[in-house]
Design a protein around this nucleic acid. Sequence first.
DNA 1: ATAACTTCTTGACTTAAGTCAATGAAGAGA
DNA 2: TCTCTTCATTGACTTAAGTCAAGAAGTTAT
Lengths: 190, 190
Amino acid sequence: MANEILKYLSKYVNITEDIEKAINESVYIKNFTKGTILLKEGDFSNDCYFILKGCIRSFYLKDGDEKTSEFYTENQVVLPNEYGQRIPSECFIECVEDTIVCIGNKELETLAFQKYPQLEKIHHVIADMMVVNYQKTFTEFKMSSPEQRYLWLLKNRADLMQRAPQYQIASYLGIKPETLSRIRKRIVKK
Amino acid sequence: MANEILKYLSKYVNITEDIEKAINESVYIKNFTKGTILLKEGDFSNDCYFILKGCIRSFYLKDGDEKTSEFYTENQVVLPNEYGQRIPSECFIECVEDTIVCIGNKELETLAFQKYPQLEKIHHVIADMMVVNYQKTFTEFKMSSPEQRYLWLLKNRADLMQRAPQYQIASYLGIKPETLSRIRKRIVKK
DNA sequence: ATAACTTCTTGACTTAAGTCAATGAAGAGA
DNA sequence: TCTCTTCATTGACTTAAGTCAAGAAGTTAT
């Protein structure tokens, strides 16, 4: 099952035997049921996740509302903002569905990078890709109206509409649930 | 002058002599005057920049308007989305002020990483930080109203208000110039 | 099966952003 | 210095999002 990670990585870098070993030594697999809170505001975050199956979201409590900042699904990496630092988390991380993840933690990660320096290459490629992805997504978001952002979601992450409740998706789009409901109505008419 | 980069890096990692050599071999310094276009939509991007002095922005042409996606100032890294890939750029990069930069390019970078594998450590730390920064900024943006986003800018990047014209800042905030003008008026009253 | 929740939709109304056009102010160039 | 251009502000109006409240639909637990 952990070789899903290897399959994922092999799209970007060449997987050697050592790397395979490194991954297997550094992560373990765990199941969580829908609704499980993986990280609470104020807690220290020492784990990161690679999703094998299921859906996870991160959200903040602000003005009495939950604001979903990100949804993560199969083959995505959940990297808490304060991962491995000794800083209390500002957000919650929760399973939106029953979810199977590979868990990595800061200590094992550090050991692995020491023992297998070739891992740096992988980190390099993946991190570059994540930076570019964030830049692109952020830009797209800023340039778009709420309606355009919803259409973007339909086009690029249509599955989320089935997987997560609408009020969570609304805050993910930066709007209120009522507004998302009305945008959907408006679009059906067109 | 290039040791500004080293000073910046030394905040995050230990700088060895080799790393110093690597940096000096891989970047060169150049001046640009206000208004210089460093990258045009459709062009291939092979350079990245570390700003020593000045201000640079990236923007897109969409619906006949310029949409500023990011402002970069002293000690920030301008990393074009398509940097080093053989893909035409979707955005423009322009100097908002007379600007002095360290320029790195993909070929020299690749050579440097081959010659000085210790550089991977630096890349690791800086890339991690960039990913977290983007996550945080994006989240902050999504959770805020246009007015809150403007206040956020005043608090965190106040200098931009003096350095860039208001219509560019408006699109950076995801709003129209007229709206920014009205938000400013509203806030003064309060 | 029923009750208790949670989520989604709808309506009526308020507030703020978008649009278009005009004017004013500041800066650049001849 | 004067003109031309660019940018910022303002007004009047349109459109869309936020707010509050009520009710419908769908879930969960007992």
